[in-house]
Design a protein around this nucleic acid. Structure first.
Lengths: 224, 224
DNA sequence: TTAGGATTCAAACAAACGTTTGAATGTTGA
DNA sequence: TCAACATTCAAACGTTTGTTTGAATCCTAA
């Protein structure tokens, strides 16, 4: 087992697969495209990963493990700092979603490509993806849920869960690509707005998320 | 041209395609699955629609035309009622997103199936989908954008556009399937919460969206 | 230097894909 | 009733798909 070339082939396949899955989706990407653009033999992909499905799993796994470890680390650090006191909601939101968005600027962790892949995949109901996400996210969500419950003791837990869900949606959409924004854009934004839009995304999204999280509760259900 | 049977075959294909595209995506669904489950001959799909791509377009077109006409009608009605005064932001949000969600309870317009298909497709960057959406949404978004600008004159237009984008994301995710919520759920919700969750989605989402829309603006960009 | 496992490679596999064909059947208006 | 058109149908088309094979090559440890 060669230490430089083996890792190179594996990594080249993973990197290209990540980008192509982002561009064209899982079913829309063929093994021949992946291995072709990666400059490796077709059979190499099956040799290193076993199957296309297993390759998809690896593409997500190597990033999500890093991300969710980082999310737990940041939350741990905040809670230590707070010394038993509940955190501020804005801290929790930043630890979860801010860490995700800042991953887009982290060159060794896939940069924007993985972020966009993740965003577009979050609404994919395919069994494979759902199973993978459930396994990869469960610990992290449990911790953040608990932190939010403590931070917002006056808000019913069901509402917090729903709002976490909405926050995930707004964020997925935001990172799925500023391309999709071209739908909504067109209209009069200054060049300045466009140039800085990527780096300004985080504060803008954060304001929106916290506004939604702290919004007045909906009227209680009709008892008829 | 037979008036009952032709419409039947066409509609049966459209209905099944809508459901299968929702379940498995465009590339993940084959013409044989569609025509098989619809109980029509394989060649019938190509006969009536020309190609798989054209079939996908039709699936979206018949629903989006209805939805966006309805959205414009509701907004027109509100503006007439207001007699030249700007609308309240919450009215505009409800006219746009409320109309969408209420479509899920409209049996002749695809019900929840189309809603979930739309939710999962919103993050799809494929050229075909983007072109279709751009054409189908442009008029409506233009009108609603203008209404929001008038309703929130003190907010910079760029911020409004971004927040509209975030609102679209939260909504897409919410309608893409309460299945995806199983990710976040698990945790202690009462049975009552679960039973009423579908009909309670709209007020919950609305509170979140308006909270986000009206949140304090993010700090201005660093001038360094 | 050499044996043995790891990796690459060209080639082939069966299966599934979207689409087309031409004949058969159904339907309509004169 | 019959000609003209619309629709259905079974069959086949050529591609492309993911995966497998077995030989060739590379690398490393003894």
């Amino acid at each position: 087992m060669n230490d430089t070339k083996l890792i190179d082939t594996r990594t080249r396949i993973l990197d290209v697969a990540e980008r192509l899955f982002m561009d064209s989706g899982y079913e829309g990407t063929s093994m021949r495209q992946i291995t072709g653009e990666a400059g490796v033999n077709l059979a190499a992909a099956n040799y290193h990963f076993g199957s296309k499905e297993a390759l998809l799993q690896e593409v997500f796994k190597r990033r999500l493990e890093w991300l969710n470890k980082e999310r737990l680390r940041v939350l741990d650090e905040m809670e230590t700092q707070a010394g038993g006191q509940p955190l501020k909601p804005s801290q929790i939101v930043d630890a979860f979603f801010g860490t995700l968005l800042r991953m887009g600027a982290h060159p060794t962790q896939g940069g924007e490509t993985f972020l966009r892949l993740l965003g577009r995949t979050h609404t994919d109901p395919s069994g494979l993806i759902k199973t993978l996400f459930a396994a990869e996210y469960s610990d992290v969500l449990e911790r953040y849920k608990t932190a939010l419950f403590r931070a917002l003791p006056e808000v019913p837990k069901a509402e917090i869960v729903w709002r976490l869900h909405f926050m995930l949606g707004a964020t997925s959409y935001a990172i799925a690509g500023t391309d999709a924004l071209d739908l909504v854009t067109d209209w009069q934004l200054t060049e300045d707005d466009k140039i800085h839009s990527s780096e300004r995304l985080l504060p803008r999204l954060m304001s929106f998320l916290i506004g939604g999280l702290r919004a007045p509760l909906p009227p209680p259900p009709d008892k008829s």
